[in-house]
């Protein structure tokens, strides 16, 4: 009766159920699935080691989100009140990174941040520093990668919320004696909230599951849950354990999403990124 719902059911819901099913199965010898029920993978997942990896991933995603929103908000704010011509130019520059493959962008960042990379060679040649700065293969490099990747996803929804403000509202507030600060917090900021929240969701969750950026730009300590899940599937071939980790991650994300939908119904606030 409804092909779209059917599609979603077949290619999305059913696969998730299969993963949950796998997570309760025994690992076959040399990989594969042994169809016997077990809880061992969950016991293992809640063992200190993996809990600490989960917590670390949350921390990385959280820090990334805070940095991203701090940079993105002023940019979106500027853009929302810029001249129409400036808006178009900014919009163009912000979506330009999307035209380059994600991996290529990360590769380019690597050459920017490396020990003898672009930034270090400029600073060294101009005599500002004597020793090259360590900007890659550590947490700093990883955060740069994450922020770079997420910035457009944060700017666009905030912009699209702020863009709806009618300037007369702000003028009225100022005319009626409110200070600039009051006006910002009472008028402008509330308008931006749906966009900020959407931006946070679009930043936090993909960061949580990413495994490429820690691999390319992170250091030896920057292991995230995505790396562990990928390794379980593609290297160690322990699919049930990988599935158990994926299930736990899904549960966390589901809780996050239901809070989001409860408090900020995205359909009503219309904060989808529109180009």
């Amino acid at each position: 009766m409804m092909p779209p719902a059917f599609w979603l059911l077949l290619f999305f819901i059913v696969p998730l159920i299969i993963v949950i099913g796998y997570s309760f199965s025994m690992t076959g010898t040399e990989g594969g699935i042994d169809h016997k029920l077990t809880l061992e993978h969950y016991f293992r997942a809640f063992n200190g080691l993996y809990v600490s990896i989960f917590l670390k991933s949350f921390l990385y995603a959280l820090v990334t989100t805070v940095i991203t929103v701090t940079i993105a908000f002023p940019m979106a704010y500027f853009m929302a009140f810029a001249t129409p011509r400036m808006k178009i130019i900014m919009m163009f520059l912000i979506i330009l990174p999307f035209w380059t493959n994600f991996l290529v962008r990360m590769y380019s960042l690597m050459s920017l941040l490396g020990k003898s990379g672009f930034i270090n060679s400029i600073l060294l040649n101009s005599g500002i520093i004597e020793e090259p700065l360590k900007m890659m293969n550590n947490s700093f490099g990883m955060y740069v990668g994450f922020v770079y990747w997420n910035l457009p996803f944060m700017i666009l929804p905030i912009f699209s919320s702020l863009d709806r403000i009618n300037i007369s509202l702000i003028e009225a507030s100022l005319d009626l004696g409110a200070t600039k600060n009051q006006t910002f917090w009472r008028i402008t900021f509330p308008y931006s909230v749906p966009g900020v929240v959407a931006g946070i969701v679009f930043t936090f969750i993909p960061t949580l599951g990413n495994f490429i950026i820690p691999e390319f730009l992170g250091g030896p300590d920057n292991l995230m849950i995505g790396n562990v899940i990928t390794a379980q599937y593609l290297e160690v071939r322990n699919w049930p354990f990988g599935s158990a980790l994926a299930t736990v991650l899904t549960m966390f994300v589901m809780i996050f999403i239901s809070i989001y939908i409860r408090f900020f119904d995205p359909a009503k606030s219309k904060n989808m990124v529109t180009f």
């Binding site: 990413n210 899940i229 990928t230 899904t250």
Partner: peptide
């Protein structure tokens, strides 16, 4: 919203 890796693994 779901992290891409979970969807990748699931499908």
């Amino acid at each position: 919203i779901l992290p891409e890796i979970i969807f990748g693994v699931a499908i």
